[in-house]
Amino acid sequence: MSALSLSPARRSVPGVFVALTLTLTIGWLVVLLDGGQLFNQSTTVSLLHVAAGLGLVAVGQTLVILGGSLDLSVAYVISLSTLVAAETMNGSDGAVLPAIGLVLVVSAGVGLLNGLLVTRFRVNAFIATLGVGLLLKGYLDNGYDGPAGTTAPSLVQALGYQRVGPVPVSFLLLIAVTAAAWFALSRTRFGHHLVAVGGDPEVARLSGVRNDRVLVTAHVLCSMCAGLAGIYLASRLGSGAPRVGTEGLYDLESIAAVVIGGTALAGGRGGVIGTVGGVLLLASIDAIFNQLEVDAFFKQVIRGVIIIAAVAVYARRAMRKAA
């Protein structure tokens, strides 16, 4: 695997978008033959809502994976964030900003813990974030049996349901976060350092990059993205939900979306634009199957096949390029 490629983001982006276009075209035709309409207002809106939730998590996940790490605790951070948000607001519009602030602080704290475990204590990222996830799971299981707290009505209105044409505000938030992450990755020192650390930590260190600091930052940002996803879900559901993150399989699905988007799981190659493509691809498949009223379990089987197939295609291309 080449350690340092100069334009890490550019190469793998088109693939997923070709797949997305193909999927949407074929899906549109199939749904049309079935007597339905894929791109009417309600399906488009719900597709973008699904994409917004998963997308926020996946963009954060992209950052840690680029750095050669990964985060399995995001699902629990999401659940925790919905609860922190909804319980702090407790239905009052005045408490929206403090609640959002508190969620970001709490999730940043979790990210900091993840990052320190991975860097200072040299715990394998898989185990470190799994362990932190278990810590949070115990707290959630112990303290909550069901929904708790109430999201402020104004936030439910603004982030949960408000939209501009067919585009929900939450999706605009995703676009903003993606743009910020893209900028950070391709135009700032942090971004270049992160990719270098993911490509070859030893070379990065010898070139004067402070690997630990870069990775900790990536972990903090990743958890904060999961926190944002939690705020979005709290505004969608109207309350805090202690199992929403795990039931949505946000941990594994976000990693899948990142990898489908062309980011190498080993780190050092890829970017957030591809990830959004991956998220849209997963959300489109969902929408198409919903339109065709395909069995939910069958959908999951197909999802598994697609994830494997997509990555196999990337691997094939990488091999041909290397040859």
């Binding site: 594994l252 990693i255 899948a256 990898v259 799981l265 080993a266 999951q300 089987v301 999802r303 598994g304 096949v305 994830i307 494997i308 990555v311 196999a312 691997a315 094939r316 990488a318 091999m319």
Partner: peptide, 14 residues
């Protein structure tokens, strides 16, 4: 050449 994390995650879903 699919990373085993992804292979077995896909298998899990399947």
């Amino acid at each position: 050449r699919v990373p085993s994390f992804i292979t077995t995650l896909g298998m899990f879903l399947i």
